[in-house]
Design a protein around this nucleic acid. Structure first.
Lengths: 154, 154
DNA sequence: CGCTTGCTTGGAGTGCACTCCAAGGTTTTA
DNA sequence: TAAAACCTTGGAGTGCACTCCAAGCAAGCG
């Protein structure tokens, strides 16, 4: 009875989304469920993105169903990337608004992208720092494990 | 009258925490507000970490106030690093429980650290991918900005 | 035609990680 | 010694990013 539109929550142990399904080009009209398959987002989330102004206007079929274009999918790709950087959705909405506003926002958009790039570089540096800590700790655990093992066998 | 224990929310535009104040060694007793200064966490968060089992038992003064040790600060450093990786607090709690449980959890802890390292590497790769996208977009914007500027001056 | 599957809406609910509050006891500074 | 700053608790509140629900319309198939 109920709509089954979640992406299976069972077996997502080591698989990302199933390669996020490359979209077949040659078409420029996709239903929401196709977009779900391409992006790994849920239909809920896609509609929510639209409500909060994160999406441009999405075409509709004659019966009112959403028809996403390749352009829309490109935008969703960018949104996905920005999401990975930890950028708040509200900031992305502001960016989307600037895009809609047109040419006079070029400078601001440019600045926002550069600031984001700076943040991403900083986050990469932090993560590499963390990686170093993990490496040290893992080596320590490996050694300690050795010690424990030899103690046990003694 | 009220407790003033937030770290000033006004001017945090480009400063991280104020270098997170290196702790002066030679001591092994710190009040909660000193720990706030060292870690950049709020006192609220420190107490919350304790409630949920993320901290080992923290010493108390004879009147019941918390006295953090260097060991505790080291643990908070690790927690901070893990937090940067996006590890959920619940997972950190599980790790803390394993540490408390002792030797028989060595293998599990080792595995958890290695899995985390794998995740961190993956996230770094994602971010570098995103960086590439941003670079391309920024170059595009720079060119388009040039075009606009020359158009305006025409 | 009926059945299944898919899409629509606004609004309410969820989970996470804090964040704050009130009311009171403690410690430090003047 | 008095005022100011700091610490304690349990429980309630906040903000974000979804996530779900009910009720209903629509499309394809045997």
């Amino acid at each position: 009875m109920t709509v089954m539109e979640t992406t299976e929550p069972g077996t997502d142990v080591c698989v990302p989304p199933p390669q996020a399904l490359r979209r077949p080009d040659g078409r420029d009209q996709y239903t929401i469920s196709e977009v779900v398959a391409f992006t790994g987002l849920t239909a809920h989330t896609l509609r929510w993105y639209e409500r909060i102004g994160l999406m441009p206007h999405i075409d509709r079929s004659h019966t009112g169903q959403r028809r996403y274009s390749n352009r829309d999918l490109d935008w969703l790709d960018l949104v996905g990337k920005l999401r990975l950087t930890g950028m708040p959705v509200a900031d992305m909405v502001r960016y989307a608004e600037m895009v809609r506003a047109g040419d006079e926002t070029y400078a601001d958009r440019f600045a926002l992208l550069e600031a984001t790039r700076r943040d991403v570089r900083a986050r990469i540096a932090e993560l590499q720092d963390t990686l170093a800590v993990l490496d040290r700790k893992i080596n320590f655990y490996a050694d300690a494990g050795q010690a424990l093992a030899s103690e046990r066998s003694r």
